[in-house]
């Protein structure tokens, strides 16, 4: 072994050891040896405490009255990105009951169960857009026709646009689950679609 190789090997060992240590820390805290993305900060341990979040002014006296995200999210089902909350599940399980009308708590959403399957190129699964999951939150005209033209083939879409905050990206990537959760939209495997 020459000197260079030794340096590399020892550095590698060092890095691996450090990574492993970090991993162990995460494992102990989460109580699960196989969490998703082992080396990411698990959602339960993210520190978004208002006084530490670097956008709230910690000297504001009112801060202690505001709800902490961690407290708010404790009873809700987890997810892998964004708020680390599966909002659709939270709603379906009745864990949150958002009012559909701010003046009349008894009004309920009129949802529509219409699925639009959009074919994509390559081996990426096709997209299935469920209107049902969206219409329990939104009004038709929130999206049609300012964001999506309600017309067949009028909405050629790319992930690039979405990442730039257009089309689905108006919400997904800033308040709804982000595009890193590929499999929540790309759900239709090509084989099923051809049937």
């Amino acid at each position: 072994m020459n000197k260079r190789q030794i340096t590399i090997t020892s550095l590698t060992l060092f890095a691996v050891a450090l990574t492993a240590l970090m991993g162990v820390g995460v494992v102990n805290a989460a109580g699960n040896p196989n969490p998703f993305n082992r080396l990411f900060v698990p959602p339960k341990e993210r520190d978004t405490a208002l006084k530490n979040d670097k956008i709230h002014d910690p000297s504001v006296p009112g801060l202690k009255l505001l709800q902490q995200p961690k407290e708010a999210f404790a009873p809700l089902p987890g997810s892998i990105g964004g708020n680390y909350i599966n909002w659709v599940q939270a709603l379906n399980k009745g864990l949150i009951k958002p009012h559909f009308d701010h003046l009349d708590a008894s009004k309920e959403a009129l949802s529509m169960d219409l699925v639009i399957v959009m074919e994509v190129k390559g081996s990426m699964p096709n997209v299935a857009f469920p209107h049902k999951e969206h219409t329990v939150w939104l009004e038709c005209t929130n999206c049609h026709d300012s964001i999506f033209k309600p017309l067949k083939g009028a909405n050629p879409m790319s992930m690039a646009e979405i990442m730039l905050g257009q089309k689905c990206g108006v919400c997904h990537g800033s308040v709804a689950f982000p595009v890193t959760e590929c499999r929540r939209c790309h759900t239709e495997s090509k084989k099923t679609a051809k049937k």
Partner: peptide
Amino acid sequence: RDGKTLVRSLHFETREDEYRYELRR
């Protein structure tokens, strides 16, 4: 519309359209 599934198949009018699609991809 309730209870329906509509498929928007990938179909390009022209080769140029397909090229634009590939550019965005």
